[in-house]
Amino acid sequence: MSHRKNKAVGLAAFDRSRLTSAQYATHGSALRSSQASALETQLSVFRSLLQQFAATHAKDIKSNPTFRAQFARMCAAIGVDPLLASSHESSKGGKGQGGGDSMWAQLLGRTGLNDFYFELAVRVVEVCGETRGENGGLIEVGMVRERVVRGRVEGMGVQGVTEDDILRAVGTLKPLGSAYSVIKVGSKQYIRSVPKELNTDQSAVLEAAQVLGYVSVSMLMDNLRWTRARAQTALEDLVGEGMLWVDKQGIEWEYWSPGFMLEGDHPLEGFD
């Protein structure tokens, strides 16, 4: 007995430590709950302020893209996604009192901003679908915006659509378990509509291709210090995914980013 006590080893030691950790846990949860209730209070205060604000400025939020973006940014800064507010909370096990509709839907009515983003999301899905064959399901956000604006839908103030709006619209697809996600390659943001991860080499190639529109094996070897085999593999993988197009009519094979087809040249220039 004493033997064991001195050394403080054996089964009793486990009991003791279990006891201590239980105490810690109790204390911890007490702390947590008090913090949580404090936060909850803060949140509800914030909520009502936000509601007031949104109600007062509903019209501006709907009609003015800059204002809308700022409002969205403000919400984001405080960690509230107005579009997804309710679904987030309910998934966390639910303090949220709003069932079903998002905060925006509650604030601005069913036909408000919420619908704006859902309609936009539909357009985004269409654009991604239309162009998937040519870009392998990876398209720059700016390009999506351009196409959405070009093919403007009636009754939708698409001319005021910003890239911010596009990203938010993609966000609305998330609860649907969609494969749509936003990824950043180099300096540009892309919408990915196929559930495919890019490996680091592939990202590096796509990033390199942003500079001139294309890359070649030797460019990758020179600039990234890759071996020929590595460069070749990365390029062929991307061609295989449909994310690069090959031009075999140059001095060396060039692998082009389909995004450059759209940004591209100036078709009409120099024709007359």
């Binding site: 040519e134 061609v239 197009w245 090959v246 009519q249 060039e254 087809m261 591209g264 078709p267």
Partner: peptide
């Protein structure tokens, strides 16, 4: 159209989906 100035547009694409789009 812009693709007319996209050099790979003139090379048959090896990826079948891409080729169809082409």
């Amino acid at each position: 159209p812009r693709e007319f100035f996209f050099p790979p547009f003139f090379t048959r694409q090896t990826n079948l989906t891409t080729h169809h789009a082409q």
